[in-house]
């Protein structure tokens, strides 16, 4: 079976859930190898990669790889594609992931398909486009196929791998070193699942009204072990940090359950949540377009409905 390269997404050295999904998917296409960029590779990371089936882990652990955005990952992958001739390269559909895939495609002159939600054994990718209204199947026709895959599209399933470490030392090109990361500012609140990866997302919009109002949204989220999201109206007003914005210029989420509270359903918001499996809406305006997407909707004041729901979940899960 041919090798499938999977670029690891990590946060402070911890392997992200999306990588375990990609390794699971890679096992249906060939033999997965993980690719780790930058310092911080640890036994704990190796254990996760092994658990989900990585046979080899290529580690490009040089500090310099983390000091420059995007380009180093593309150069390491291009080097590995040249050496190993894999059947495909899988990258997560994050901003960094898509850009890495794009630069890699240019470097190795291969086709790239972004935002795949499935890939068949014969490398046909499924994409859900135009806000989920159209399903497209496509293939890469030239070079080594590169796919970026949406988080939450493949349930992660363990499958033992050896995770044999293989160090990769390459000299970055001058072009890759031209942009330098000089600082990193974290603005997220700890303790909840990451928005793009969460199975359940509870969002608030302009209807939440204030920073304090978001306590109601957070309480519901915590009762469901969910991530919190927000519309642009709420992030622009400063009620919730920008990192939690869902939509065209925020995160694209595709959870099992999305609960939209006090959100009208502008097209830019829908673009980021329309492919959620089940959608619940709470809005006091029965005409709000978001109701078109609802599997279950309540026309009412979120400050009455949401706390009652949180209480009821508490009772039912007790």
């Amino acid at each position: 079976m041919g090798e499938v390269l999977v670029l690891v997404e990590q946060s402070d050295g911890a392997v992200k859930k999306v990588t375990t999904e990609l390794l699971t998917l890679a096992r249906s296409l060939g033999e997965p190898s993980a690719v780790w960029i930058g310092p911080g590779y640890s036994d704990a990371a190796a254990a996760v990669l092994a658990e989900f089936g990585a046979q080899t882990v290529y580690v490009a652990g040089d500090e310099a790889h983390a000091a420059h955005p995007v380009a180093p990952g593309a150069e390491v992958l291009a080097h590995l594609v040249g050496m190993k001739a894999p059947v495909a390269v899988l990258v997560a559909s994050s901003a960094d992931g898509k850009e890495t895939a794009g630069r890699l495609a240019v470097r190795i002159n291969s086709g790239v398909i972004t935002d795949a939600v499935a890939i068949s054994a014969d490398l046909v990718a499924t994409q859900s486009v135009f806000g989920g209204s159209t399903v497209v199947h496509s293939t890469v026709t030239s070079g080594t196929p590169i796919f970026t895959v949406r988080p939450n599209s493949t349930p992660p399933v363990a499958g033992a791998g050896a995770a044999v470490r293989s160090d990769v030392a390459i000299e970055l090109s001058d072009a890759a070193k031209k942009a330098t990361v000089t600082g990193s500012t974290v603005a997220t609140k700890g303790g909840r699942p990451e928005l793009a990866e969460a199975a359940i997302v509870v969002s608030g919009g302009r209807g939440v009204g204030s920073t304090e109002g978001f306590a109601v949204i957070e309480a519901l989220a915590d009762s469901l072990h969910a991530a919190v999201g927000a519309s642009r109206a709420a992030t622009d007003a400063g009620w919730y940090p920008h990192q939690y914005q869902v939509g065209q210029t925020g995160k694209t989420v595709s959870p099992q359950l999305y609960i939209a509270n006090g959100i009208s359903g502008a097209i830019q918001h829908r673009a980021g949540m329309q492919t959620s499996k089940t959608i619940i809406v709470v809005n006091k305006d029965a005409e709000a377009p978001i109701f078109e997407l609802a599997d279950y909707g309540v026309v009412g004041d979120l400050f009455a409905v949401v706390p009652q729901l949180t209480d009821e979940i508490g009772k039912r899960s007790a």
């Binding site: 089940t278 279950y296 004041d301 009455a304």
Partner: peptide, 24 residues
């Protein structure tokens, strides 16, 4: 989907739906 008007039990209504769908 199903859309109901809150008449005091909107939150409980959603909880019932979520229970049916096995989210709770």
């Amino acid at each position: 989907g199903i859309v109901v008007v809150d008449e005091g039990a909107g939150g409980v209504n959603i909880a019932e739906f979520l229970t049916d769908q096995k989210f709770i």
